[in-house]
Simulated scan of single mutants.
Amino acid sequence: MNPQGPYDPYEVLAAAAAEWDAVEPLLSAQARQALAAALRRLRGTPAGREAAARDAARLLTDAMPDAEGGRLVATAPQAASSAGFRAEDLAALVLDRTRMVGPVLGPVRERLLSVPALSDDVVIRQGGDPYAAGLIRLTGEGGAVRLPRFQFSEDALPWLVLLEVNELLDAGEDPWGVADWWLSDNAWLAAPPASLLGTGRDHELVAVAHALTDGE
C-alpha cells in the first residue's frame, strides 16, 4: 500500500509505536526483519536518518493490509501526538524488545538505563556470574544488556539478599519494575532499597518484599 500525498514518516512510526499491539500481528516475519534494518539505520548517523524514517514508514504501510496502512497514515498526526509516542519508541519496541516506551514508561526506562551498570564481560572479568538467577538484566539501545551496578558488592558478587528479594518480586518477568523498586524512595524503609544493601538491614528488605507479594 503506497499512501497518496505527503505525510510525515516520523509521525507514522510514532503512531505505529502507539498501536504496536495491533500493528505487529499484521506484519510478516520478513516485514519485521526489513523494518528492523530500517530502524537500525534510523539510529545511525544523522545524515541517513530522514531516508531511514521514510523507508521504515513505507515498509510498514506496504506490509499492512490497505485499509490498515491507510488508516495508520491518516491518523498518524493525531494518534502519535495525543499518545505522546516518538519514532524512537518504535525502534525500542522492535530492536530492543522492550515495552518501556511512550510518555509514561519511556522516561522511567531512560532513568533506569542512566544508573551505573556493568556489562556481562565486565562482571566475568571481575570474577562474577552475570547470568546468575535473580539478577536484573536491562536491555539498552541496540540490545546491549546492562546489569545495574547496585546489585553487586565491590568484588562483583551479587548481594545474597538482593537475589532473594528479586525472586520474591519476580525480577525475571518484570526486571524494569523491580529495578525501579530498588532505586525509588520507599515509604516503609525511608530510603531507596538499593541504598540499604550491605548495611545490615537485609531482614527489612525481605520483609517489605514479602509485604508486597503476600496479597497476590
Score class of each variant (00 low, 15 high):
residue 205 L to T: 00
residue 117 A to R: 07
residue 101 V to P: 00
residue 156 A to T: 00
residue 144 A to Q: 12
residue 140 G to Q: 09
residue 81 S to W: 08
residue 183 L to S: 03
residue 111 R to Q: 02
residue 194 A to Y: 14
residue 211 A to W: 10
residue 91 A to P: 00
residue 142 G to P: 04
residue 110 E to V: 06
residue 118 L to S: 09
residue 176 W to C: 01
residue 102 G to Q: 02
residue 147 L to W: 08
residue 145 V to G: 09
residue 94 V to L: 08
residue 185 D to I: 01
residue 130 P to Y: 02
residue 78 Q to C: 05
residue 199 T to I: 12
residue 203 H to L: 15
residue 90 L to E: 00
residue 208 V to N: 10
residue 107 P to I: 03
residue 189 L to A: 12
residue 170 D to G: 04
residue 179 A to P: 11
residue 108 V to T: 09
residue 152 F to H: 04
residue 184 S to H: 11
residue 157 L to F: 09
residue 191 A to V: 08
residue 168 L to S: 04
residue 193 P to E: 09
residue 177 G to D: 03
residue 141 E to M: 10
residue 210 H to L: 15
residue 126 Q to E: 14
residue 162 L to N: 04
residue 171 A to W: 08
residue 91 A to M: 03
residue 196 L to K: 14
residue 214 D to T: 10
residue 106 G to L: 13
residue 141 E to F: 12
residue 160 L to P: 04
residue 135 L to N: 07
residue 213 T to F: 05
residue 96 D to Q: 08
residue 165 V to I: 05
residue 88 E to S: 09
residue 125 R to Q: 13
residue 197 L to Q: 05
residue 149 R to C: 08
residue 187 A to N: 15
residue 110 E to D: 13
residue 89 D to E: 09
residue 201 R to H: 10
residue 140 G to S: 12
residue 167 E to M: 12
residue 96 D to Y: 07
residue 186 N to L: 11
residue 215 G to E: 12
residue 123 V to G: 00
residue 196 L to Q: 11
residue 122 V to K: 12
residue 181 W to I: 02
residue 108 V to W: 01
residue 171 A to S: 06
residue 146 R to C: 02
residue 205 L to P: 10
residue 147 L to G: 11
residue 204 E to Y: 06
residue 128 G to D: 06
residue 101 V to L: 06
residue 149 R to I: 09
residue 188 W to R: 15
residue 97 R to T: 01
residue 170 D to V: 07
residue 117 A to C: 15
